[in-house]
């Protein structure tokens, strides 16, 4: 005997209508999500990320909501299996939250960059830069000059509280009484927002700086641009000698996350190298990337 057929009356028209409405909702949701995403990305590409809390929060919500809504509705309206849809949606939500969070955290950290450092247990520490180095008792520290050279339009010196790309801040001067004639050997730290896309650009920056200083009358290049490692630090440096003042200057580039640090170490003491090496070796960067090509 043939098994009895179980038939169910399916209200096709109603189901189609519900399915169509469901699809339309997903499609409209995708368009809204895409619009929010485009708005948030255009904001960050054409303008700068906002500084104050409210616009920063608005931007964060726009981007998070944009990625989440566009991503999840697109996946939901696709022909993928339920499991793949679930995995993809979780991945999208992770990106939707982590990417804007990373940008906002970076932004907050960048706003702190001109805050003064402090000396603690024989070391100078600058929390926002993640920078620390040995500061012994003989060192004379001018903590924060906070001079920002704005180079974007007309070059001007301002006393700002944050750095824009193209600006350069002199963060502090350190000096030790080691020169034969009793003069101090200053160490100056300049901070430049790091926007290099690759090692090439960082080297090119050092080469341009070298060319700029070396072209000045009386300057002689004693050690051209080279890249090496000091401890875990990626370092690009070069040295010049200024004949009229018998002054040795060593320029050391290191990276701290989104900032390029340029140390200028000057001395009239021919034995300066050992002391500067000691100083550079004592530098540590924590919590930020120091590689030029990452």
């Amino acid at each position: 005997m043939a098994p009895a057929k179980h038939t169910v009356d399916i209200p096709l028209t109603a189901d189609k209508s519900i399915s169509s409405r469901h699809d339309s909702l997903l499609e409209i949701g995708f368009q809204i999500g895409l619009a929010l995403f485009v708005l948030a990305i255009s904001w960050v590409l054409w303008l700068e990320l906002p500084e104050s809390f409210t616009p920063l929060a608005v931007w964060f919500v726009l981007l998070t909501l944009g990625i989440a809504l566009a991503g999840v509705t697109w996946v939901a309206s696709s022909n993928l299996s339920i499991r793949t849809k679930a995995i993809a949606s979780i991945a999208i939500m992770t990106v939707a939250i982590s990417t804007p969070t990373k940008y906002v955290m970076q932004r907050i950290a960048d706003q702190e960059i001109l805050r003064p450092g402090r000396i603690e247990r024989g070391r100078f520490r600058h929390e926002s830069l993640g920078l620390s180095f040995n500061a012994n008792a003989s060192m004379w520290l001018m903590p924060l000059l906070n001079v920002v050279v704005r180079q974007s339009n007309s070059q001007s010196i301002i006393f700002g509280d944050r750095l824009h790309y193209g600006d350069e801040a002199t963060l502090f001067r350190v000096a030790s009484p080691n020169d034969p004639d009793g003069q101090r050997s200053p160490i100056i730290l300049r901070v430049i927002p790091f926007r290099y896309s690759r090692l090439d650009d960082a080297v090119a920056h050092a080469v341009n700086t070298q060319a700029h200083f070396a072209s000045q009358q009386g300057e002689r290049l004693t050690r051209p641009v080279h890249r090496h490692q000091i401890g875990t630090l990626d370092v690009i440096d070069f040295e010049l000698y200024f004949e009229p003042w018998k002054l040795h200057t060593r320029y050391v580039f290191i990276r701290s996350g989104s900032y390029l640090l340029l140390l200028e170490l000057r001395s009239r003491n021919p034995q300066y190298r050992a002391e500067f090496d000691e100083f550079v070796k004592s530098i540590e960067i924590t919590g930020r990337t120091t590689r030029f090509d990452s």
Partner: peptide, 27 residues
């Protein structure tokens, strides 16, 4: 609308890759 999205998204990518990218992953 699809054409508009494509032009906008491709240009945003272009602007990002040309003027904002940092690091070797971006390059």
């Amino acid at each position: 609308l699809a054409l508009s999205w494509i032009v906008i998204l491709c240009f945003l990518y272009g602007l990002w890759i040309e003027h904002h990218v940092t690091g070797t992953w971006g390059t």
